[in-house]
Computed example of a mutant assay.
Amino acid sequence: MKKIVIPIIALLVASCGGDKPEEVKKSNPIAVTVSAVTENNNEPFVTASGTIEAENSANLSTRMMGHVTKIHVKVGQKVMQGQLLVSVNNTDLQAKKAQVDASIMQAQAAFNNAKKDYDRFVNLFAQQSASQKELDDMTVRYEMAKANLDAAKQMRNEVVAQFAYVNLTAPFSGVVTNTFVKEGDMANPGMPLISVEGASGYQVTARVSENDIAQIQNGMAVTVLLKSKNTEIKGKVAEVSLSSKNTGGQYLVKINLDKTDAKILPGMYTTVKFPIEKTAKVTTDKILIPTEIIFTNGDLKGIYTVSQQNTAVLRWIRLGRTFGNQTEVLSGLNANEKYILSADGKLFNGAKVSVK
């Protein structure tokens, strides 16, 4: 039986092995369109990546320690200025307020009594029925009672002001973007409890390199490319940071966006184009390719190039910044090297191609 099976298997293997090269030889080359890499030597703009932020945003916290008794809003809910957002247990504060109120009543009674005595001694002194020493002593008593009453009232103002930190209200109209605690959690002084962002306007915070920051001025009109929407929005530079000490060597630039019909949300990624004055000459050696031809395999980015034998060669590349609909290639592709823009069939590494 072994002598029969082995030749049959061998025949099948030989038959399958012989068909594959024959198919490759007979397959027609894939028609492709190619483009040569060119160095970009004079761009009319400087670009920088950025994110959209609300013009008004705040993380609200309390100065009082206590349990969170109630969260009155949910994430994504619209709120009005002054609307109650979070309540923190204020039993200790209520007790302190009661003590202060009692102190005010005591100080008020002492002041009223001292004022009556003072007025009486003023009349007696005018009638020469009381000495100067008696009037001076009564005046001191009256002033002390008045000062004690004022101190008690100021203490009450301090307690009342602390109630603003146990009942957190919206500082402006907007949207609740996050809640950092749940009901029953312990709130500590300075710990963020809830965040609110205004819905009146948006701005972009971009990070600009030290090579480009000198060309950016306040009031400069810019174009902002919203990557997720593939939409361009106009805007103006509102702030230019003059230090990169705390921003990793890059300078922060804030841009106020014009009104647009596009639905934009805080956190969206953008590319900002800063125009350069015509008198400014910029020389760079950036290699740019169309973003649409780049494909992704996990963390790898690649394109297809054409070899001298007219075959498709898969080339892994390292990418830099995005400039509109083009992306910078940092490594993996040389100047004047051809790469495939489009193909009439499915490409794979080693496929025969014919250039249109």
Rank of each mutant, 00 (worst) to 15 (best):
Trp316Cys: 11
Asn297Phe: 07
Gly332Asp: 03
Lys259Pro: 02
Ile293Trp: 08
Val282Gly: 01
Val282Met: 11
Gly324Arg: 01
Ile264Val: 11
Ala351Ser: 06
Glu232Arg: 09
Trp316Phe: 15
Val282Cys: 06
Thr311Val: 08
Ile264Asn: 01
Ile287Asn: 06
Val306Pro: 01
Asn230His: 15
Ile303Leu: 12
Thr247Gly: 06
Thr322His: 08
Phe348Gln: 12
Asn334Gln: 15
Ser342Trp: 08
Gly324Leu: 03
Lys281Val: 12
Tyr304Ile: 08
Ile340Cys: 05
Tyr269Pro: 07
Ala262Asp: 03
Ile276Met: 11
Gln326Ser: 15
Thr327Pro: 08
Lys259Asn: 09
Asp344His: 06
Thr291Asp: 08
Gln309Leu: 12
Glu277Pro: 08
Asn230Ile: 07
Ser342Met: 10
Leu257Ala: 00
Gly249Ser: 14
Thr270Trp: 00
Ile255Met: 04
Lys301Val: 05
Ile303Val: 14
Gly267Ile: 05
Glu292Lys: 14
Val282Asn: 04
Thr322Gln: 13
Trp316Gly: 10
Gly298Gln: 05
Phe348Pro: 01
Ser243Ala: 11
Tyr269Gln: 13
Arg315Asn: 14
Ala238Trp: 11
Lys263Ser: 09
Asp344Gln: 08
Lys346Pro: 03
Leu300Val: 14
Thr283Pro: 02
Thr284Arg: 12
Lys278Ala: 14
Leu252Tyr: 10
Lys301Phe: 07
Thr247Ser: 14
Ile293Arg: 04
Ala312Glu: 00
Thr296Pro: 03
Phe348Glu: 07
Lys273His: 14
Glu232Thr: 14
Asn336Met: 11
Gly320Ser: 09
Thr260Ala: 04
Leu319His: 06
Asn349Ala: 09
Ala262Arg: 02
Arg321Cys: 12
Ile264Gly: 03
Val306Phe: 00
Thr291Phe: 09
Ile264Lys: 06
Leu319Gln: 02
Leu333Gly: 04
Lys352Ala: 04
Glu337His: 02
Ile255Ser: 00
Lys301Gln: 12
Val237Thr: 06
Leu288Ser: 01
Lys286Gly: 04
Leu300Ser: 14
Lys338Pro: 02
Ile276Phe: 03
Lys259Arg: 03
Tyr251Asn: 00
Lys234Ala: 13
Ile303Tyr: 00
Leu341Lys: 07
Thr311Trp: 03
